[in-house]
């Protein structure tokens, strides 16, 4: 039989309410409180229950997580379940925090459940599968059942359904599905339009996500003493593409020394970007990576220095996660050389 470990707070463990919220992490063999309800519907043996006070987790998060991960080191388990946390905010934070840590460290699925009003849902729904639960413990059995239904499929290696069908919060992870109704895109499109024209409700298959902006970096005060670096997502590389950067869905980037050249020569550099007609960029790579004018600005003293390398990758089809990773790696190099500002050309 598969094995599960369950995380609950001090209140559901029957240890006490607010006055016991600083209760330190503890692991016990067997079932306790909500574990009984979970055990009844889960196709796995709940071997241990972990208890931690919500305030302890909230105030000493790192220590709490380390101690709990420590408890789990020598345990054999196939799934980790926390909560349900209902509308209890600190408990929700605790469930999200520990599930995220456990799945990262041990690579086992970690699931929890909480109400949509619980701030923990918003905080962790991208990282952890969180089922949409009730507001209070009165919903315990129902919430646990929904969660266990999904957990049981994972344990058996069965196919799981979409977030909506399974009942967990959307994580921003989309995948292809063949509709069992067999309804074609043409039929879906026309019927969606008919509904929209009639003022009836319809559901877009591609909801527009909210925009995520970053804080504006402080501006350069004096350009004439600043060191500038060049970056491109236009796939400009030496003709032999030494870093084997992919022409689409790139996972690699390269940096190339430009300290000894005044411009990028055709035949020495080219583009490997597959998303556009490469003729112009191959004939004169400076139209994508404007080294020639940057060297001129350097000569004129408009900028203080030019970073010795330019950085290149391909933008098309690259995942945001890969782009962010490559961006972080490039930032490390830029920081090492104390770069003050960046010009990024995109195609």
């Amino acid at each position: 039989m598969k094995k599960a470990i369950h995380y609950i707070n001090q209140f559901f463990a029957g240890i006490g309410g607010e006055e016991m919220a600083a209760y330190e992490p503890e692991i016990r063999e067997g079932l306790l409180g909500p574990s009984l309800a979970l055990s009844a519907v889960l196709d796995a043996e709940v071997t241990h229950t972990i208890i931690c006070g919500d305030n302890f987790m909230g105030s000493n998060t790192q220590e709490a997580v380390e101690r709990i991960l420590g408890f789990l080191e020598d345990k054999d388990f196939d799934i980790f379940i926390a909560g349900p946390a209902f509308q209890a905010g600190r408990y929700g934070f605790a469930c999200g925090t520990i599930c995220k840590a456990v799945q990262e460290k041990f690579g086992v699925p970690a699931l929890t459940s909480m109400n949509e009003e619980n701030p923990g849902a918003e905080m962790f729904k991208k990282d952890v599968i969180i089922f949409k639960g009730g507001k209070s413990a009165a919903k315990l059995r129902g919430d646990v059942k929904v969660l266990a239904n999904y957990a049981n499929k994972l344990l058996k290696g069965e196919k799981t359904l979409s977030a909506e069908e399974e009942g967990f919060f959307e994580r921003g992870v989309r995948a292809q599905v063949w509709l069992e109704s067999g309804e074609t895109a043409a039929q879906r499109g026309v019927s969606m339009l008919i509904k929209k024209l009639a003022g009836e409700e319809f559901t877009s298959e591609l909801p527009i996500p909210k925009q995520d902006l970053v804080a504006i970096a402080p501006p350069i005060k004096d350009l004439s003493t600043a060191k500038i670096a060049l970056v491109t997502t236009g796939g400009i590389v030496p003709v032999d593409n030494p870093d084997r950067i992919q022409s689409a869905s790139a996972t690699r980037w390269g940096r190339y020394d430009i300290s000894q050249m005044d411009r990028l020569e055709a035949g020495v550099f080219k583009t490997i970007h597959a998303g556009f007609d490469p003729a112009a960029a191959d004939a004169d790579p400076n139209v994508v990576m404007p080294l020639d004018v940057m060297k001129e600005f350097l000569k004129e003293g408009k900028i203080g220095a030019l970073h010795n390398y330019f950085y290149s990758t391909v933008g098309t089809g690259t995942t945001q996660a890969e782009a962010a990773r490559m961006g972080k790696e490039i930032v490390e190099k830029l920081k090492e050389d104390k770069v003050d500002g960046v010009i990024l050309t995109a195609t």
């Binding site: 997502t233 962010a324 490039i330 003050d340 960046v342 990024l344 050309t345």
Partner: peptide
């Protein structure tokens, strides 16, 4: 990419 650079506190201009 541009966001990671900006996030690190380095001003960046995207030319596109």
């Amino acid at each position: 990419m541009v966001k990671e650079i900006e996030r690190a506190g380095i001003p960046v201009v995207e030319m596109c």
